[in-house]
Amino acid sequence: MAVSGFKNRIEKNLAPSLIIRLSEVDAPMRLAARAKRARGQRGSVELFFAFDDASSAYALITLAELVNQRDVDLIARPVVNRGIPDDPAVDRKRSYAIDDAVRLFARGGTELVRRTPIDPEATAWLAQWVADAPQSAALTDFTVEAVRLLWLTDGQQPDRERFERLWREKLGGSPPAAGDGLASNEQRMARLRMYETPAAWVTGRWFFAHERVAQIGEWLDRLGWEER
């Protein structure tokens, strides 16, 4: 009885309270950021996102604007498979994400044009292109523009030729052949203990990116990557 009472106290009181205390320890991350700057390196915001997810569209576009004024790179890591296994509310969440993104974009005066969910398989090829290409500012630029086309320009079915033209315009040449980029992104996301998109990893902390843009900015400030 005493043992189960103590176990109960650890699970319900001591462990979660300890996690809350640990969440405020940030000295190692600030030191790592300082060391990175001393080596002349830039900061990074790694965004795990899905082209078919309206919340991801908002996160990608707003984070691109956030890092623009800082010595920070936005690393776009598309995924297709994500979420809590056997989640019974997947379809409702997909639909809700659109209603929510309409309101999030409206905060900045932007209209979300697409009002119907996209099947993840309908943009899986786009995710594969980005996942299998080397990281670069041009790739991030392509990714942001592709998301704008998908969500802010029209509600049409994703047209592969249109995105191939955009690829040639931004990066030149043809999109890469399928490799292991997507699987690698999904594995990294799982290793970082993130389970849903859009999730941003910023020097030791992760955030649900669409609803924590200001907090990501504050964390970058704290790490010393302030606006120029």
């Binding site: 319900k12 009181n13 309270s17 809350i20 969440s23 405020e24 649900f208 924590r212 907090q215």
Partner: peptide, 20 residues
């Protein structure tokens, strides 16, 4: 727990110790 602590700090609300 991590995210709520950040949000609580932003809102000026106490968070922790907790009893689930």
């Amino acid at each position: 727990m991590f995210d709520t602590k950040r949000e609580a700090n932003r809102l000026g609300m106490p968070f922790g110790p907790v009893f689930d």
